[in-house]
Simulated scan of single mutants.
Amino acid sequence: MTITHQDVQRLFDTQLDEPVLILTEGRTLVVSAADVDDRYPGALTIGSKTGLVDEFGADGPSERERGEVAARWDTEVSQRGG
């Protein structure tokens, strides 16, 4: 599985409540954290918009930083067996 800078951007740009990026059935989705357990059982939560804001501020990560976050998350997913 490859997490891309576009995945990071989709997560940052969404207007969902408490959005997270998840991996389910071999694909990434941006969903509300409240929906993960009920609608996506077994999904792996990769990261959250709150985490991005905490790390990069309200303007979010730059293009370079989105690539770095994607690479870091991709490594974490691979290490978890995702």
Rank of each mutant, 00 (worst) to 15 (best):
L23T: 01
L23V: 04
L23A: 13
L23W: 03
T24R: 04
T24C: 07
T24K: 13
T24Q: 12
T24A: 12
E25N: 12
G26V: 07
G26F: 03
G26E: 06
G26W: 06
G26R: 09
R27F: 05
R27P: 01
R27N: 11
T28W: 06
T28Q: 14
T28I: 08
T28N: 15
T28H: 15
L29K: 07
L29W: 07
L29M: 05
L29N: 06
L29S: 00
L29Y: 12
L29V: 04
V30A: 03
V30S: 03
V30W: 06
V30Q: 05
V31M: 08
V31D: 05
V31R: 14
V31P: 08
S32D: 11
S32R: 10
S32L: 09
S32W: 06
S32M: 04
A33F: 08
A33D: 14
A33S: 15
A33G: 13
A34K: 12
A34C: 04
A34T: 10
A34V: 11
D35M: 09
D35F: 06
D35A: 12
D35N: 11
D35P: 00
D35S: 13
D35W: 06
V36F: 08
V36M: 13
V36N: 13
V36S: 06
V36C: 11
V36W: 00
V36P: 00
D37H: 12
D37L: 15
D37A: 14
D37E: 14
D37N: 14
D37F: 13
D38F: 07
D38K: 10
D38T: 07
D38R: 12
D38I: 09
D38P: 00
D38V: 12
R39S: 10
R39G: 01
R39F: 10
Y40W: 08
Y40V: 03
Y40T: 04
Y40I: 06
Y40A: 05
Y40K: 03
P41K: 06
P41F: 10
P41C: 08
P41E: 10
P41A: 09
G42Y: 15
G42H: 12
G42F: 14
G42N: 13
A43P: 05
A43M: 03
A43D: 05
A43S: 13
A43T: 10
L44M: 15
L44H: 15
L44S: 15
L44C: 14
L44N: 13
L44P: 03
L44T: 15
L44R: 15
T45I: 15
T45V: 14
T45K: 13
T45G: 00
I46Q: 00
I46R: 05
I46V: 15
I46F: 06
I46K: 00
G47W: 04
G47M: 01
G47V: 01
G47F: 08
S48C: 07
S48W: 04
K49P: 10
K49T: 07
T50C: 00
T50Y: 04
T50Q: 05
T50G: 05
T50W: 01
T50R: 08
G51K: 03
G51N: 02
G51P: 02
G51H: 04
G51Y: 02
G51L: 02
G51M: 02
G51R: 02
L52G: 05
L52T: 05
L52E: 03
L52I: 04
L52W: 02
V53A: 03
V53C: 02
V53R: 09
V53K: 09
V53F: 02
V53P: 01
V53Y: 01
V53S: 02
